[in-house]
């Protein structure tokens, strides 16, 4: 990348990190000014999309609208972002309601100056220097970033995976466990492996379902 180009995209290469506080911001949205701190006490799925009034993005917003009630039941909020203006956002969500019969009940940030986009590394210059990619940030009630997913502009995201991811993280926090590949709510979970020889020896006598001392599962 040319030096001038790199300077222009600058912070685009800095991704927030899992396990660290999600970067704070204040931004204009379809619900007025929002701050990340407004969401403390609840989980947040903060996602970006490339552009309003485009087909893949519209399918995603419709899909988010279909899970928003389920997310509320498990204390999860949604917030979207693109670089389009708040007027464009308002027109688009009204269009979605009219054409698809779905009400968008979450705020959508109008990040016209790309401040938040750069803070969160949402711009992928190889795809577009101006529009945000399809990014998802899962932020916990303490404001810590717990997971991030990046999808290309061409590929709509899977809402069931986002639901599964949040439920897995909530299960981890509630029971101090990990979740295995393809875990679904109700499946057994992974017991944290022992970290000393003594505990490894004792593990096999603790009543878990174990393949070996490091690989044990249980129901929650």
């Amino acid at each position: 990348m040319e030096a001038k180009e790199e300077q222009e995209v600058g912070e685009a290469h800095h991704l927030p990190r899992i396990g660290e506080p999600a970067p704070d911001f204040e931004a204009e949205s379809t619900f007025g000014t929002v701050r990340l701190e407004d969401f403390r006490g609840s989980w947040l799925i903060f996602f970006s999309h490339p552009a309003d009034f485009t087909p893949v993005c519209t399918t995603e917003f419709a899909a988010f609208a279909e899970i928003q009630d389920e997310l509320k039941q498990i204390n999860v909020n949604l917030m979207g972002l693109s670089v389009d203006s708040v007027m464009a956002h308002i027109a688009w969500v009204r269009n979605i309601e009219e054409k698809f019969g779905l009400e968008i009940q979450f705020p959508v940030i109008a990040d016209s100056d790309r401040k938040v986009a750069h803070l969160y590394g949402m711009i992928m210059p190889g795809e577009s220097k101006t529009e945000t990619a399809r990014c998802v940030f899962v932020i916990d009630p303490d404001g810590i970033l717990r997971a991030l997913i990046y999808y290309p502009m061409t590929t709509g995201r899977n809402m069931q995976e986002l639901l599964r991811l949040v439920r897995a993280l909530q299960t981890t926090d509630e029971h101090t466990v990990s979740t295995p590949a393809n875990w679904q709510p109700g499946d057994t979970v992974i017991v944290p492996p022992p970290r000393t020889q003594e505990l490894a020896e004792e593990r096999l006598r603790e009543g878990y379902d174990c393949k070996d001392w490091y690989f044990c599962q249980k129901a929650v």
Partner: peptide, 12 residues
């Protein structure tokens, strides 16, 4: 209202 919305509204 969700708490995040209350916080933003009260701020305004």
């Amino acid at each position: 209202l969700p708490l995040f919305r209350v916080r933003g509204t009260v701020r305004r």
